[in-house]
Write a protein that binds this DNA or RNA. Sequence first.
DNA 1: AGGCTTGAAAAAGTATACAGATTGTGGGAG
DNA 2: CTCCCACAATCTGTATACTTTTTCAAGCCT
Lengths: 218, 218
Amino acid sequence: MAQPRKSHRDRIYEDYLERIRNGAIARRDRLVDTTIAAELGVSRMPVRDALMRLAHEGYLTATTRGFTLPNLSHETVLEIFEVRRLLDPRAAAWAAQSLDPGQITALERHAADAQAAIDDGDYQALYRASEAFRNGWISAVPNREMQSAVRRYLSHVQTVRMVTMHDRRVQQIVADGQNELLDLFRARDVLGAEKRMLVFVIQAEQSYRALSRATDGR
Amino acid sequence: MAQPRKSHRDRIYEDYLERIRNGAIARRDRLVDTTIAAELGVSRMPVRDALMRLAHEGYLTATTRGFTLPNLSHETVLEIFEVRRLLDPRAAAWAAQSLDPGQITALERHAADAQAAIDDGDYQALYRASEAFRNGWISAVPNREMQSAVRRYLSHVQTVRMVTMHDRRVQQIVADGQNELLDLFRARDVLGAEKRMLVFVIQAEQSYRALSRATDGR
DNA sequence: AGGCTTGAAAAAGTATACAGATTGTGGGAG
DNA sequence: CTCCCACAATCTGTATACTTTTTCAAGCCT
């Protein structure tokens, strides 16, 4: 165990970041410091600090009426895709070089969870499993700066999932991508993983473009 | 003019970010909220919020005794170089496509300032001119996400400058890089600018490796 | 009836106070 | 003279209170 010497602020920050990760915060939820403070039995201040930090890091957006999940515009989503096309493949290459057997076992479990969720048609579980898979390989990136640069686009990944993951073809793309990446990770195929991750990001962008056009003409 | 409707917090944030940019904060300075608050005639809170935000964004580090400029470890500097090798060239390509004549004129002025500073041996002026040049072309990047991703590594750039810029050969590399980039920007040579920026980042890394090894065995 | 005004409610911003933690220093014991 | 300890100074973390801004809607005017 790490030192339990942590401020309320940091605990709340980590708690809510985790909630955002695993989809426990709904898009309509409005997070208000006084409300959360009352629930936790602390004052506004540490809650406020945590929420403002999450907002500055892009995981939430501050409105005049509480914090909510960010509503990335269509343009912003496309802009972030360009950044991710540069970063994610290299990060995956690092992961391929560094993942240990235990971490690969964990990824296999997440991939199996994702497949099961697809079979059950359980979107919520599919989101969680996809996020766990992504979080898993990112954790193995030894370059800490690369790691945090890649992590930063969590909201983007979630937005894209929200738009695309209901589609059966997309679900297949995700399952195939996870399985092929797993093979490359097991083989420590650095260049293969880099290339496959680039393909995966491009596929995600194509799916997003196709499905966002179909559903909503922003 | 934009609306003057801004919180103290945001004004202080921008003010101190600007000070960090143009080198007005020395490495030994310790920024303490109560002190700054007293100078500005406000309470700790907005100052504290601004400083904590700057710290979370990597522009400062929080110590147990005030905020200071970050002391990036040798390893961190090298890790960030890898990220910048991916991002900076693409950002420069975007800039080449988008810079308008007025912006190019501004860049020419900054490059001239840099050359003058080199001739005078005025490091402080050279830092400022280099930062202004960098800030100038980054501002022209139309992809806002790319822009903020690249801006984020300000402290890295400053750290590298601090270690390398006293060297005559490095000064020549900087001057050459600025002039050649300017030519490419003027010609709207997107691919040329991308490639030249990659060369520039690699040169910076090589200079850093050589000079940090020479001066300090971290 | 429709548009505008106004005021109460909600939440963010700021101020102040105090508690907890850390650092540095001076004095005493050996 | 040196080492250790305790205490004061300093700064961060949290609590609470007050102020300002924004929103929303009821009611007024035309």
